[in-house]
Design a protein around this nucleic acid. Sequence first.
DNA 1: CGACAAGTTGACGCACGTCAAGGCCGGTGG
DNA 2: CCACCGGCCTTGACGTGCGTCAACTTGTCG
Lengths: 252, 252
Amino acid sequence: MATVVSKPPRGMVECPKCPLHGMKTFRAFTAEELAFVSGFKRGELAVEKGATIIMEGHHNAHLYTVLSGWAFRYKLLPDGKRQILNYLMPGDLAGLQGSLLGEMQHSVEALSPMRLCVFERDKLYDLYRNHTGLAFDVTWIAAREEQILDENLLSLGRRSAIERAAYLIAFIGSRARNAGLNGTTAAQIPMTQQLLADTLGLSLVHTNKTIRKLVDRKLIGWREGGCEIKDMKGLLALARWGGIGETPRPFI
Amino acid sequence: MATVVSKPPRGMVECPKCPLHGMKTFRAFTAEELAFVSGFKRGELAVEKGATIIMEGHHNAHLYTVLSGWAFRYKLLPDGKRQILNYLMPGDLAGLQGSLLGEMQHSVEALSPMRLCVFERDKLYDLYRNHTGLAFDVTWIAAREEQILDENLLSLGRRSAIERAAYLIAFIGSRARNAGLNGTTAAQIPMTQQLLADTLGLSLVHTNKTIRKLVDRKLIGWREGGCEIKDMKGLLALARWGGIGETPRPFI
DNA sequence: CGACAAGTTGACGCACGTCAAGGCCGGTGG
DNA sequence: CCACCGGCCTTGACGTGCGTCAACTTGTCG
């Protein structure tokens, strides 16, 4: 399945030492849960930037949790048009649809080098049987994803190009900050304008002109392959959006 | 909360006699599950067409399963622009986001007279603890919703107006047929063009002209407040979409 | 040095949105 | 009975937001 570069468990992280623990965005595990998840974990996957982790139309026996790095989910039309659905950051789950419904109906590609936790799909049922709290968490994550997609749909359907762009950048920036992804001060978002365009449902050229307007208005900065938020409040106001909550969230 | 007309348990259906059982689209319950769900059910809600069942920004202590009728989920922008996110039909769950994440971030409105099964939000955890199969089903439903939203996003972002319309009508028609909603022969979909427009992310006028093209091409028929699919294959081809599966699905 | 990926900019056209007017119908009240 | 009204659909004229095409720049990697 494409160019997945899998470095076998060279430096596989033990769950108790998982870098996601102890972050204030994520909820804590009980000792018992931690033990179970350790057994649930089947391995670790390291991929290069650009690697396809999940492919539309395929059946996949695995479920992943992002440990580090970025990725995005997308769908293609037969003529090659691409729509990016959402971004994956540390703590996010990938492959749940496939685990429950059979065939994956979207692909996932790495935006940066990544490390992922690999779970056996068949063991998901054990998790549900033995750890109500964790099962609840999985559903929590699914409901959260639903909420994000809702907002995205509102954006594509009813916001203008510049509002959409403002929303998207504010959204990704906030999530990245919560996931501890960027430098301490400036929120550097590593992305190309092509990716933005495919997320916003716009053409590349028009996306470029829209980004330029945001730069001119001093809401963001753009430097070669990345964007930096300069005025979050301004972005939120332009997008007419309330921002995301900061309550701690579960992960598996 | 708006005009909810609640006829108290006058003719409340006992779960074992639930009209959804025995339909080939839905999976069967075990006797034990049925017993549990009977206890889980807290009452029944009957609403008129046009009633608001769930309201954006509110906290809601309940979780609903649609027993009969149609509804739709939507979000509003401050200026009143509306984006419809998805439609609810018999067997669908409403209010899960609120149950897990706290505040509802979308509203739900009845498209026809409806009956809904009401569950206590707090008992959801009991369900997870005692009935792994049902907990799995809830997650299944959430993942399915996610999949639908994915396809919708692809539509809004990358399909033209006529393709979007073809996709939407084919999609709703298929789901309605699976849920046993329409007459046996002709799939009459009761909807206004305003609703279609708000789902497609288009203006009312352009939606009208687009529908007209579909009628001219003999793909659908439109008669006052409803649409009828005349050539499903044609719609699917125009939308470049594979259609939905027919595997039996769970419900609660 | 060329090749390629990412960004920029201008010219032009079309798929949409907006505005405005009118038709058809059922319901309500005289 | 007609008069009036409010949903819903329809149609034309016109404007604009965004797509498409095409050219150029800059930086990076060989």
